[in-house]
Structures are given as structure tokens and as C-alpha cells.
Design a protein around this nucleic acid. Sequence first.
RNA 1: GGUGGGUUCGUAUAACGGUUAGUACUCGAGAUUUUCAUUCUCGCAAUAGGAGUUCGAUUCUCCUACCCACUACCA
Length: 518
Amino acid sequence: MERRTRVRFAPSPTGPLHMGGVRTALYNYLYAKQKGGDFIIRIEDTDSHRFVPGAEQYIIESLRWCGIIPDEGVDENGKVVEVASEKHPHAPYRQSQRKSIYRQYAEQLVNAGFAYYAFDTAEELTAAREAKESVGETFIYNHSTRLNLRNSLSLPETEWKALLEQRTDWTVRFKMPENTVVKMDDMIRGHVEVNTNTLDDKVLWKRADELPTYHLANIVDDHLMEISEVIRGEEWLPSLPLHYLLYQAFGWQDTMPRFAHLSLLLKPVGNGKLSKRDGDKMGFPVFPLQWTNAEGETSHGYREDGYFPDAFVNLLAMLGWNPGTEQEIFSMEELIAAFSMDKVQKAGAKFNPDKAKWYNKEYLRTKSDDLLSDAFMPILEAKGVKAERDYVKKVVSLIKERATFVADFWDIASYLFVAPSEYNEKDVNKFWKEENYSLAFKVADFILAFDGEFTKEGIEGPLEEYIRGNEWPMGKVMNCLRLALVGASSGLGIADIVTLIGKEEFGRRIDAIKARLC
RNA sequence: GGUGGGUUCGUAUAACGGUUAGUACUCGAGAUUUUCAUUCUCGCAAUAGGAGUUCGAUUCUCCUACCCACUACCA
């Protein structure tokens, strides 16, 4: 029986989405789209204490920027769907708004003997933990300790029922079976086994805020939303046995999703997972979009730093997955076609900022001159430069393969808009000698007097013939002109520059350098 | 500490028992170019360590080391 592929990305709105989170969403999306299935977004906001305003919107906007568009859970306006409809049959997609449905499932588990009520206070549990730790042991809330704690298993029925009525701080805990080996399969890691003796009786539901914990909400919602594969971060692997057991306890093992646990993204140097700090320190973003936190601290975003979304998606996809071929550049469509779970790497991937830049550079040169001009125009305006769009387009077409970001354009090509204000000292020392610039001025006169077609193609040949014909040193002469035009011995070909800026401006720059350096 | 996961050039990865261990990024050298950039060519550089299985191990098993995650009424 073929089951429709339905996967979900289930972020917790506790802050901006990390690039590792975007990768998890991307792999979910690629998997779903390849199978012709659904990609669903669900907001897991069952921890009211860690809620961060704006985080939810940030997450959705980030995915949208990447071209990761959910089929279900978020509407066309980028809002999380709250009311069920044909397209979004499982609404609401925010767990805080699904509050009412979890309690019955928690109770179902208690009635069936898979869970129980616990009345221990936070202080009591902390004390129990510390007592164990002080003798070098680990406290585990499970079969070995639960009968000494305060719960519906250890207390007389009349007593715990009274407590259930009086107190508002009890929880429902899963009754972890004793000495049972849970056998699990992971699409990436293969077979995994864990003995339940090392696991504890996890809290499933909290009376205090009438909310489930992650484990309960997650299993219930995945079941209700008919999720076929759960693709999530490696940090969830340790709780996979609990999730298996929960599916069994509910009697849902036949429709239990398959699981894939993705390795984490690691910091570029040293040990540990990639964090906000690394980005700040090494000057690369760890977030898709810029984010300002409550304290007013702003973190860089790939979007604001000038990365193209398709480049970002591409580099993210290649971090922990490979196509098995030597192809490195993939569009979203190609990724969807090529993606496969068994090519996903088991080990964590160290993020390499250099490679990230390389990707952007590769994408930049494939972008149209129109698109790049659109991006460059505002920068020019900010520099106080007024330029015709057609002119900018011409410039962009000539310089785009020299840049990694659009923001590099100004540094690379400012001389095509404004005259150099200074002359690079090293280059001056190297080239600005009388025997060179005296010849360069003659070449300048030749250019000024040139009456053929004043285009790169028109003047390039005659210019070269003129210099070679006179047997003048091409490099030295050209670099003196370049010094005058660019201010340094770098940049486009002289023919490109003069035809771009025009004879008049060319003459002015020659006069300027004469005045300054002769 | 306990449990689980992981380990191929600096980095991302290929080679799913037999290759001179391949590719890309970075870095270095050279060529091309009127300079710079581009482009091209070449180069540097790895199977964590130790046992075992095998005619043969990067690949399978075990041990050690190291790294990561989890160990909350957080997700």
C-alpha cells in the first residue's frame, strides 16, 4: 500500500531560524517534492516561557526567501493557518492553538496503563537528583525510582485522586517499561537499539499550563497530520525510543512515520556546533535573514549580506548531502530530482565560509545584467552617483565575473562613474616614469583624435596597432593610462574604459594626472 | 559520569572488499591577458590508532582515542 508522502518542518519560535534549521527544512522539502508529496509547516510553541515575538514570522519569511514554500500550514500571505479548510485540513497548525486535543490523548495513555500522574514538585526532583549526584550516580525517574516518588503508581488511589483535584501542578509521565530493548530504524543511520533502563519517564503533559511537552504533541500531531517521514535534527535521536514506544502505546505503529536524523552543522574551526558567535567572530552569517533581538543586537543574514537565495540553497544542500556525481551547481528543481536520503552524510559537516562565497560568485555570474543592474542602482544612488540604467547595464556586464557580491561592484568599478581621487602609490612608483608617461600622453592624444567608430571594437585594434607600430612597451604605456583612469594598475581594458566614460571625461582624467604628477 | 551517534587531504565529499585513494573550495607555481580579475595547466595535501575476518581491507567485526548530541514540567 502506497502512502502519500507527507513531511513536516516543525520549528519552535524561540528565535531566528539558524542555517542548520533551514537545511533541515530544505531536506524535508526536497524529499516531499521528489515524491510528489506535501511539505507541511507546524509551529511547536508549547513552551510559553521561551516564546519570542516575531520568530514565527521570521521563520516563514526565511523559508519563503529560499523558495521553500509549504503546501500546508501557511497561507499565501505567509500566515500560519488557524482555521481548517480544504487546503489546510489539519488547522490550526500552531500547537498552542491545539491545546484542547492533547489532554485526551494523555489521559488515554494513563487509562491504558502506559502513563501515570506525577505530583513531584520541581524542588523535590532537584533534591532527588542532587542526592544521587552527590554519591556519583545518576538519577533516573523510571521503574527503579518511581515507587519512591509521589505519583499515581506509588500513592493510594484515594490520595492521588484527591491530589489530582486539589493541585494544579501535576504532570502526566510516560511509564517507561523496564529492561526492554527498543529496536529502531533510521533512514540515515540504519538500525539502532536502546535499552529502556537508561531512559526516564518523560513528562508528556503539564497541568500547570495545560500544554503537552514536545514528545506528546509531536507524536499526536504527526499522527493526526498523517506524516509519513520525520526528517529532523540529530538532537532528537536520543528520544526516538520514547517516540517509538509512544506510537505503540497509542496503537499507531502501523502508520508510524519513518525517521531520518540529520547530523548537525559544525563551526568552521575548532570543535562544536555552529553558533551565532562563530559568525560574528569570523564574519559570515549563520542566519538566513538579518535578525535583531530584544536587546537590540543585530545578527547578519545571508540575504542582507548579498547572497542569492538560490546560491544559499545550493550551498546548504551540499552540506551533508552529495549527488554521487561531480555536479556542484544545482537549481532547486535539480535538487528535487537528485536528492536521496542514502546520500546524506552521517557525520556532522563543518561549515566552510570560503565555499559559501564561491557559490555566490558562481551564481552571480549567471545572473542577468538587468537583475544585477537593479541591485546595483540603489548602491550607486547611495554613493551620490547619477547614472543611466543602460550605462549601468553595460558596466555590470563587463565586471560581473570579477565580483562575489553585488556590493563588490562599487569597489571594482567606481572609476567608471567617478574620477579617481588618488593614485595608488605602489603602482605610481612602478609605472609612472617619464619615459613611460610621455608615451602614454601621445597615446592619449591618439585616442582623443580618433575619428573612427568610438566603441571598444572600433578602437581596440587601431590602438594596439598604433602602440606596437611605434614599438612602445605596451604594458608600461597602458598602465600609465590606467593609472590616470583608474588610479591604480588594475581594472578593465583601456579600450573598454575610454569608450565607457567617453572622450571628454578621458581628457579630463589625463589633465588631472598631469597636474598632479608631472 | 551514563546512553546514543560519529571519524577519508585544512574544509565539503567520491570510492558501497581489489583504484597510482578521485573531485571541489582554500593555498602555492606556471601559462594567457595592455594591468587586475577571469580562464587554463600543474602542484601541495587524507583513510584517527590497534587488533581481527579475508588471498586482499577506506569499506566488515572488536577495542582504544577523539568529536558531537542527549541526559529539564526546552524544543
